[in-house]
């Protein structure tokens, strides 16, 4: 064991723990703050009374959001994009990672080099945009799914994991007459559950959080994903004010008001909801998943 004696070190320990708690608070407070504002009474929010704890209780902000058809629509769109996009990602990544993990695959070095090259050298925004629109993918969800079908980084993580599976297993299955597709499906993938879940998480979060491709390729508001909705409401400030005015005027005089920031934070909190819910469950698996990815090879 490392030695823990000495007054200096004890003092350091105390400061260190205080610092760590402070870091955790700084990380969590913004999210907590948005949450308490979103459930506080509208007048209390507008007069700046809400700082450390909720004041009053009101779900008006959430009810207002639920009445906004564009919000619900974008939420559903994001679910569709995330599910279908993640499936495409997984299939494509596995189809490439597996051959590259096989030591007897002729050409793996070259393919690997080409793939890594595209990590650092890309055509850039305009040629990609022109390609995607020329392929007729504009205004379809394919434009959000296909261009990023394989993340080279994730592919390398997966390949490295596959490489860790003893080659003898593959050989044995091969001798038993299984072809490589069978081997991948019934030998390799069942042994790779941890890495598959890590990939699902990475890709799904990427789709859930994506907004820029939607901004580029989608023009119809009813197709927008949630992040683009949030961006338009909070950062460009357009749709919300309208929805708000109609909401405020529709409620009787004297009823509690809906503050603009409460409405914004309610939308933000709901856009993060899947991540906030899933996160505590899966967070302890991250370390193994990330560590496998070393670029070398």
């Amino acid at each position: 064991m490392r030695q823990n004696k000495g007054v200096g070190y004890r003092i350091f320990q105390v400061f260190n723990i205080i610092l760590m708690i402070a870091i955790c608070l700084v990380i969590l407070f913004p999210i907590y703050y948005m949450f308490i504002v979103s459930i506080s009474d509208g007048v209390a929010v507008m007069t700046g009374q809400v700082t450390l704890h909720p004041v009053g209780f009101s779900l008006r902000a959430y009810r207002a959001a639920m009445k906004d058809s564009y919000f619900l629509n974008s939420y559903w769109n994001t679910i569709v994009i995330t599910v279908s996009g993640t499936i495409v990602n997984l299939v494509m990544t596995a189809l490439f990672a597996y051959p590259l993990s096989r030591p007897d695959f002729y050409g793996r070095k070259l393919l690997m080099r080409c793939a890594v090259f595209t990590m650092f050298f890309t055509g850039g925004m305009i040629p990609t945009y022109m390609l995607v629109t020329n392929l007729g993918l504009g205004n379809t969800y394919w434009a959000l799914i296909l261009p990023g079908a394989i993340s080279v980084y994730n592919m390398i993580i997966m390949r490295t994991f596959f490489e860790g599976i003893p080659f003898d297993l593959t050989e044995a299955a091969y001798i038993d007459g299984a072809n490589d597709v069978r081997i991948l499906c019934s030998v390799i993938l069942p042994l790779s559950k941890p890495i598959i879940w890590t990939m699902v998480l990475f890709y799904a979060v990427g789709h859930w959080n994506g907004f820029f491709n939607a901004l580029l390729y989608l023009t119809d508001k009813s197709q927008y994903p949630i992040q683009l909705f949030v961006r338009n409401v909070v950062l460009s400030g357009d749709t919300l004010s309208m929805a708000m005015t109609t909401y405020n005027s529709s409620t009787e005089v004297g009823a509690e008001m809906l503050s603009e920031s409460a409405a914004k934070y309610a939308i933000i909190i709901m856009s993060m909801l899947p991540i906030l819910v899933v996160f505590p469950i899966v967070s302890r698996h991250f370390k193994s998943g990330v560590m496998i990815g070393a670029i070398k090879g």
């Binding site: 870091i23 955790c24 990380i27 969590l28 999210i31 979060v205 859930w208 959080n209 994506g210 907004f211 992040q227 683009l228 949030v230 961006r231 909070v234 950062l235 914004k264 933000i268 856009s271 993060m272 991540i275 996160f279 505590p280 967070s283 302890r284 991250f286």
Partner: peptide
């Protein structure tokens, strides 16, 4: 585990 959390929050939300 707490320190990972922000990584999964979207850039739109962070900017917001």
């Amino acid at each position: 585990n707490i320190s990972y959390l922000p990584h999964f929050i979207s850039v739109v939300v962070v900017a917001s």
